[in-house]
């Protein structure tokens, strides 16, 4: 932390900074506080008060109990956990290996590989949701094209008398939900940046000590990368958890939906009457608790590990 007091006495600046931070934190916290307070009120008091009120209602546990018994949010929380974990592990694992290859090996395809990865950062999944859905709905589609284009289908039709059409849907599976989110190489840049800060003689020293590329990765690079690995794992876990559009279309049954989608579906169900606001607020807290706790506890590690300053 910088000690600006060293330079000069800047009371006015510090006072302004304090006001700014108080305002900023209020802006962030007030919606959460309102959600939290409302989540403690029973539906009846909420109606009587005519909506938003700042009185604690003492019914938080009742509302939570309703969430657990009357909705599928608990199961959907499990889905979120599974999908977010798969996404984080796939993304970090691949990006770590890719960045390792990019930084420590010379190769003809290095530039091409890099370009292939940059493109994935530019066009987010939500932008190509229509066609990604079609692919996940039938991952065999490219195979059908190939068979069509090469004339293999034509030949099979001649011989067997029917035209094969392969169909394999990954909709409503964890993998089908997770894989498209994971098909993104942002972390390659983070790891690449980190590897470039390692001493340039380190790989040479390892070679002289008799370590091959795999040994060097496992014994030296992996332990040194603990901070960025933990940070990116958490970051992508949270990112996948809060994803909405893709999980919304990739899973159609409530049993397979993620918690965030499930919560939004509960809100959808009763449009005409005054909504069960306290219950919804409790639900919002319920589905947000795990990622917020992770971010709050691991804030330092995440910021340090992503090393965003030097990009």
């Amino acid at each position: 932390m910088k000690d600006s007091g060293m330079i000069e006495n800047a009371r006015s600046v510090d006072r302004a900074a304090t006001i700014v931070l108080v305002a900023g934190m209020s802006f962030i916290l007030i919606p959460l506080a309102i959600a939290a307070v409302t989540a403690t009120q029973p539906y009846e008091t909420f109606i009587e008060a005519g909506g938003l009120s700042f009185a604690l209602g003492g019914h938080f546990l009742d509302n939570m109990e309703k969430i657990l018994s009357e909705t599928k949010l608990l199961r959907q929380l499990g889905n979120s956990l599974a999908v977010a974990t798969i996404v984080a592990v796939m993304k970090v694992g691949f990006c770590f290996l890719a960045a390792y290859a990019l930084v420590f090996f010379e190769g003809k395809f290095r530039r091409a590989l890099f370009a292939v990865m940059i493109a994935t950062v530019m066009l987010p999944l939500d932008l190509r949701v229509i066609t990604t859905y079609q692919i996940v709905a039938n991952v065999a589609m490219p195979l059908n094209w190939i068979l069509d284009a090469t004339g293999a289908n034509w030949a099979i039709e001649k011989v067997a008398g029917f035209r094969p059409y392969f169909r394999l849907s990954l909709l409503d599976t964890y993998f089908g939900t997770a894989a498209p989110i994971a098909a993104n190489c942002t972390a390659v840049f983070i790891f690449r940046q980190f590897f470039l800060t390692l001493p340039k003689d380190l790989p040479r020293a390892a070679i002289m000590d008799g370590a091959g590329p795999i040994r060097f990765m496992i014994d030296i690079v992996l332990p040194l990368s603990k901070t960025p690995i933990v940070a990116t794992l958490l970051f992508f876990f949270v990112g996948a958890w809060t994803n909405y559009l893709w999980p919304l279309v990739a899973a159609s049954t409530p049993d397979q939906q993620t918690a965030v989608v499930g919560l939004a579906r509960i809100a959808d169900s009763d449009i005409d009457e005054i909504p069960q606001v306290p219950l919804l607020m409790a639900g919002a807290l319920f589905v947000s608790f795990i990622p917020v706790a992770l971010i709050a506890v691991m804030q330092r590690q995440i910021v340090r590990g992503l090393n965003l300053s030097s990009r």
Binding site: M1, D14, A17, T18, L21, V22, G24, M25, I28, L29, P31, L32, I34, A35, V238, W241, T242, N243, Y244, V260, V261, L263, A264, A267, L280, M281, G283, A284, V287, S288, P291, V292, L294, I295, A296, Q299, V303
Partner: peptide, 25 residues
């Protein structure tokens, strides 16, 4: 300043809350 520390933590919380969840709020 004294507030910097809690501010750094609290201000990044929304990152962990889905748009669809806070939208309801």
């Amino acid at each position: 300043i004294r507030l910097s520390h809690p501010a750094r933590n609290i201000i990044i919380w929304p990152k962990a809350i889905a748009g669809a969840s806070i939208g309801l709020v």
